[in-house]
Design a binder for these strands. Structure first.
Length: 427
RNA sequence: GGAGAGGUUCCCGAGUGGCCAAAGGGAGCAGACUGUAAAUCUGCCGGCGUAUGCCUUCGGAGGUUCGAAUCCUCCCCUCUCCA
């Protein structure tokens, strides 16, 4: 069993920590199995890559013997957190909320063990919705100074754009969450993104005032890529953890395409590989980083979608981009297949009726309908610019028509640019 | 409640009656170079498609006009100042 207090060191070495309210205090608190919590946004029915750090923080906590609590901001989601947003969030309906809660818990369950209450998944709607306005003002509201709230960074930004009263109350509700959890579950540590600092501190103050107890807070840094983009954002939108929303293939690709400068940092942040091992490969540069990128992609995919799926995408990606041997001594704890036997990868597949190909089908139609291009115009452009490949042969003719000659075993491989590939099956 | 400013294509932002599918930048896409990286260069960047063409788009609904993102009316939203 690991030493519970070492989790803090682990966080430090992995780059999980932005701020701590009281480092020594937290260390003492974590010196024996403790309870900690993180709140999650209920606005979608899947987490995305941006939530990975908080989620993995809970995973680490559990591995070190602590009891993590994931709070779904059901009650607060009905309001919308202004922190770090420049716009007001849309309000959720009850049905959406319940649906999202189910889906999110299922996702977390793959990573966190909720059996026997070793971890908890709670919805703050359970205790927030029943609050009485007047009681709340008397018991909780009086402890908050508006002056201090206005000074909080999270509100200051919004003050410039405009902040309505409902959002202004968000801090009180989140502080109340923390107070509630400290009272009911002895949870004295809250973690969260750096934009949550103000809310966390407010909760600590409230606990001090109401219970006379000391609570703690840790915030994670906002993770951006080397190019300055927010983590997990692509042109197509967020990179989701749900394979329904982001295919496992695209998920894997997102990670392999990591910028050189981010590889080591991301290995520490987003995989569970031992930090010792990661630190040993820190000096690798240039092309040597390619196997590391594959390990990164493999490990994260494996964590989120499971080992089997990860092996599958890894194999198919290798058949698209070429297999490389990953040395046994490179991050030895990784379960990535070190050698790939030449096998046909499983490309993302789209099926078409067989008569389409028998009649002959315009290449641009196929590109468009298979989802590789967003419109026929885009498909034409792609062909004109030399980015369209059928079975690895570049097709430059915009009016190209595919017929039976193009297929082998009822399928063909369609490429758009270097990175987007689909297998088209006709039957 | 009063006064003012504003809402333009994925984002920022120009455009004040025809030359506007709408400048410029960013993002994105393709190609070259490469290592499924970055940087750079070239091209593209509403849709249908190849027609001096049509359709959709400048907050929403109407109107004026041969013609509107641009003018008028009403409405919605945002911001600033005052109360």
């Amino acid at each position: 069993m690991k030493n519970p207090s070492d989790v803090l060191g682990e966080f430090e070495r992995r780059g999980y920590i932005e701020q701590v309210t009281d480092f020594e205090g937290v260390k003492r608190y974590l010196s024996e199995p403790a309870v900690c919590y993180i709140g999650f946004d209920p606005t979608a029915d899947s987490f995305h890559v941006g939530s990975l750090v908080p989620i993995l923080a809970l995973v680490h906590m559990q591995r070190y013997g602590h009891r993590p609590i994931a709070i779904l901001g059901g009650g607060t989601g009905l309001i919308g957190d202004p922190s770090g947003k420049t716009e007001m969030r849309r309000l959720l309906s009850w049905d959406e909320l319940n649906h999202n809660a189910r889906m999110l818990k299922a996702q977390l369950s793959r990573l966190i063990d909720f059996s026997d209450d070793k971890a908890l998944f709670l919805n703050n709607a359970d205790w927030l919705v029943g609050l009485k306005y007047i009681d709340f003002l008397r018991d909780i509201g009086r402890h908050f100074s508006v002056n201090r709230m206005l000074a909080a960074e999270s509100y200051r930004q919004r003050l410039e754009k405009g902040l309505n009263f409902i959002e202004f109350n968000y801090m009180l509700l989140q502080a109340y969450d923390f107070y509630y959890l400290s009272k009911e579950f002895d949870c004295m540590l809250q973690m969260g993104g750096s934009d949550q600092w103000g809310n966390i501190v407010a909760g600590i103050d409230l606990i001090k005032k109401k219970l006379g107890k000391q609570a703690y807070g840790i915030t994670f840094p906002l993770i951006t890529t080397a190019t300055g983009a927010k983590m997990g954002k692509t042109a197509e939108g967020a990179v989701w953890l749900s394979s329904e929303k982001t295919s496992v293939y695209d998920f894997y690709q997102y990670w392999v395409n990591t910028d050189d400068r981010d590889v080591i940092r991301f290995l520490k942040l987003f995989t569970m590989l031992p930090v010792d091992e990661i630190e040993k490969v820190e000096d690798l540069k240039g092309e040597e980083l390619n196997p590391l990128k594959r390990i990164l992609a493999f490990e994260v995919t494996s964590l989120i979608h499971g080992y089997e799926e990860a092996v599958k995408v890894y194999t198919s990606a290798s058949s698209v981009f070429g297999a490389i041997e990953v040395p046994d001594d490179l991050l030895p704890s990784s379960k990535i297949p070190r050698k790939i036997e030449e096998s046909r990868g499983t490309y993302p597949t789209v099926t078409f009726p067989a008569d389409r190909i028998e009649k002959g089908i315009f290449l641009y139609d196929l590109l468009c309908e298979s989802g590789l291009c967003t419109s026929k115009s885009a498909a034409r452009r792609l062909i004109e610019q030399g980015g369209a490949y059928v079975n690895d042969v570049r097709i430059n003719n915009v009016k190209a028509v595919l017929n039976k000659n193009a297929i082998a075993e009822n399928s063909l491989i369609l490429r758009a640019g270097k990175k987007k590939v689909k297998r088209i099956v006709f039957n």
